[in-house]
């Protein structure tokens, strides 16, 4: 029963979702709307589940003094401070100058932006060490990358006015064609995986 019941739920819900795409009339549409609302409720609950899990995992790390456990203290402290700043002023926490907005724009914002900007350093280092014209395909890729890098910044236009047009052409044709092919492949894979799950062939999600 522990196997059959989840499989039956997946089968019924999967088939029902497919049917709703083709039969948008009552009562199926109303039932579908109810399921959508349930989904949003469940997803919202995941925020609490995620927060609880974060505290539990990091609390365990502090308790057992696992490697780099000191970072877990910082994480839980930061979580607590942001939660407090967000809750204690209620709706007014989004007003300009509130403790929450102060922490958001003076701590969270620069930290996240800095982490993301570190990419520039690693990309440059990796380009120097790994971006080699080892064969014709690599050479084509390298040339395309250089053209796009020049076409996407004003200095490229200053060197030659045609760089932005070349960049747009690369983006609109070779790039779009490749992306479309990849997308179609992904979607066919998704459809086959969904069918495997609905029919009970794919069961790894239950483990």
């Amino acid at each position: 029963m522990r196997l059959q019941i989840p499989l039956a739920i997946i089968l019924i819900m999967g088939l029902f979702t497919i049917v709703t795409s083709f039969v948008p009339a009552k009562p199926i549409a109303d039932l579908n709307q109810t399921f959508r609302n349930w989904y949003i409720g469940i997803i919202t609950f995941f925020i609490f589940l995620g927060t609880f899990n974060l505290v539990r995992v990091n609390g365990e790390r502090i308790k057992t003094k696992a490697r780099d456990w000191q970072y877990s203290i910082i994480l839980i402290a930061a979580l607590g401070v942001m939660l407090f700043a967000g809750f204690f002023k209620g709706r007014a926490s989004l007003d300009e100058g509130s403790p929450f907005m102060y922490l958001y724009f003076n701590v969270q914002f620069p930290l996240e932006a800095t982490m993301y900007s570190l990419l520039a350093f690693f990309v440059t280092s990796a380009s120097f060490r790994a971006f080699r014209a080892r064969n014709t395909q690599a050479l084509v890729l390298l040339l395309a990358a250089v053209l796009i890098m020049l076409g996407r910044v004003p200095v490229g236009t200053s060197i030659w006015k045609g760089f932005p047009d070349v960049t747009e052409w690369i983006m609109s044709y070779p790039n779009a064609a490749a992306k479309r092919g990849i997308r179609l492949g992904i979607d066919l894979g998704l459809i086959s995986m969904a069918l495997r799950m609905i029919l009970g062939i794919e069961r790894s999600y239950m483990q």
Binding site: T124, S127, F128, A130, F131, A145, V153, G156
Partner: peptide, 14 residues
């Protein structure tokens, strides 16, 4: 702009 030129320079150098 300058960062892109620098990356291109490093790619050529590499």
């Amino acid at each position: 702009s300058v960062a892109h030129l620098l990356i291109i320079g490093f790619v050529i150098l590499g």
